[in-house]
Nucleic acid binder design. Structure first.
Length: 469
RNA sequence: GGCCCCAUCGUCUAGAGGCCCAGGACACGGCCCUCUCAAGGCUGAAACACGGGUUCGAAUCCCGUUGGGGCCA
């Protein structure tokens, strides 16, 4: 029997969760869910100078928003590296006792000198091994690495990657000041948390042979590894702040639905035939770590927005309303109390917006009367025959027996005919008067949703020719 | 600098020797639909980095070059 799958996402709380980290988290989560395993969140906060509580909260908040729930991790104690120093110490002692690690007191100056010499010879710097057999009992703790041979990383994405021991050296597990190094903490954490699959960024592939040697020295079995390519900026360099918004909450604030974000991130480096849109259940069912690509992918905002649009367009009314309401409020607008009316409004808006922010913007006129009118259009439509046509319209609308979109359309068509105009003439005039704009959802739907009273009020509030901005 | 990874349309990718003079999606152009804007439908342009092999046959396998990225410093 293979042991149950246990994976982890281990961010450093030195900033917000960015999209690269979010994708790593997502792939781990999908892998766990697909295999019915456990997903663990671990906070790698050994860099105390840059780790903050705010950042931990922010990362947790971002993961929750994305819906990547974990079985083990904060707020439960014991999932932060700063709470685990006893474990690191304990494992260090074990390595010393077993003779697999030794203390070293080489002064930094000497090491620097050797490093420079190696560089001059165009060779990889390797620790000389000066302290290997000196039997010291204090100093920096180094792992004994064989001089000869190779270590092979059997990577689920890259296949077998071989590292020559001559390129590795007796790396430091614990610094002379007693603090454990990153690679050592990771190994101890992963073994003590019984992690079966380490799924992480490509940037750790080069560290992996060192870690494998450490697992072996500790006499632990080595987990499976999968190193995924990183997310790149448009210039193909590693995605960073200078490429614009990269934090997960920036996308939430921009009105991207979490499901769309997840869908986009999943498709970045992974695919399933020609399918582009995946429900979460489909993602869990179809995800296969072996189908993850080995090459880096550029983060494409445009495609993310397209996916966001797909979700907004097809989502059922109630969840869409739940997502939109905070954005209506944030814009300082009034949320219609009648939920079915709101749903009707959203139905006319959803295919016109790529984000929730945009949706509120294009539907602004539903939530408040136009405060201004598009100047160029107003100058053309509210002059000449405009006012007279509006008056005729008001009269006709006052008499409409049934205030529905089809009935309204009928009235418009009859009046259009009578005035010898085209439908577009009256439609645009009305649109501008009612929404302040020349583009909106179908005007009859808009009027129906606004209601007779509000429509007539807006038609009557049109400014005198030339008085608009 | 040493080592490691990567390389199909502008972008995300399909492709695991013949199904490919390379398919889908985003973005872009055109046409249609149409009360505006969208959405939708149809359609167009657009790629196997380069050079050697292996093979009857290579985007697919091997080697090298170039380019990009990463790790160590």
């Amino acid at each position: 029997m293979t042991p149950p799958v246990r994976v982890r996402f281990a961010p450093s709380p030195t900033g917000h969760l960015h999209v690269g980290g979010a994708r790593t988290a997502l792939f781990n989560w999908l892998f766990a869910r697909h295999h019915g395993g456990a997903y663990i969140l671990r906070i790698e906060d050994t860099d105390r100078s840059r780790s903050t509580e705010e950042n931990i909260d922010s990362i947790v908040d971002a993961l929750r928003w994305l819906g990547l729930d974990w079985e083990e991790g904060p707020p439960t104690a014991g999932y932060r590296q700063t709470e685990r120093f006893d474990l690191y110490r304990e494992h260090a002692s074990r390595l010393v006792a077993a003779g697999r690690a030794y203390y070293c007191d080489c002064p930094p100056a000497l090491l620097d000198e050797q490093r420079k010499a190696a560089e001059a010879r165009k060779e990889t710097f390797r620790y000389s091994g000066r302290c290997r057999e000196r039997g010291l009992t204090a100093g920096a703790l180094r792992l004994r690495v064989p001089d000869e041979g190779t270590t092979v990383v059997n990577d689920l994405i890259h296949g077998a990657v071989t590292f020559d021991h001559r390129q590795l050296d007796d790396w430091i597990l614990v610094r002379s000041d007693g603090t454990p190094t990153y690679n050592f903490c990771v190994v101890v954490d992963d073994v003590t948390m019984r992690i079966t699959h380490v799924i992480r960024g490509n940037d750790h592939l080069s560290n992996t042979p060192k870690q494998i040697l450490c697992y072996e020295a500790l006499d632990y079995s080595v987990p499976e590894f999968a190193h995924m390519a990183m997310i790149l900026g448009p210039d193909r360099s590693r995605l960073s702040k200078r490429h614009g918004a990269t934090s997960v909450q920036a996308f939430r604030d921009a009105g991207i639905p979490a499901d769309a974000m997840v869908n986009y991130l999943a498709r970045l480096g992974w695919s399933h035939g020609d399918q582009e849109v995946f429900s979460r259940a489909e993602l869990v069912e179809l995800f296969d770590i072996k189908a993850v690509g080995a090459s880096g992918a550029i983060f494409d905002h445009t495609k993310l927005e397209w996916l966001s649009h797909q979700y907004i367009k097809t989502m059922p009314a109630a969840p869409l309303a739940a997502l939109v309401i905070p954005f209506i409020e944030r814009a300082g607008l009034a949320v219609p109390s009648d939920r079915s009316r709101l749903a009707g409004m959203l139905d006319t808006l959803r295919e016109r917006a790529k984000t929730l922010v945009e949706l509120v913007e294009v539907g602004r006129f539903y939530f408040e009367r136009p405060r201004q009118y598009e100047a160029k259009a107003a100058a053309e439509l509210f002059t000449g025959a405009g006012p007279a046509r509006l008056a005729r319209l008001v009269t006709a609308l006052e008499a409409v027996p049934e205030w529905t979109a089809p009935a309204l359309e009928g009235v418009f068509r009859v009046l259009t005919e009578a005035l010898g105009l085209k439908l577009v003439d009256l439609a645009q005039l009305t649109r501008l008067a009612v929404t302040g704009r020349t583009a909106s959802p179908p005007i009859f739907d808009v009027l129906a949703l606004l209601g007779r009273e509000e429509t007539l009020a807006r038609l009557g509030a049109v400014p005198a020719a030339g008085a608009s901005t």
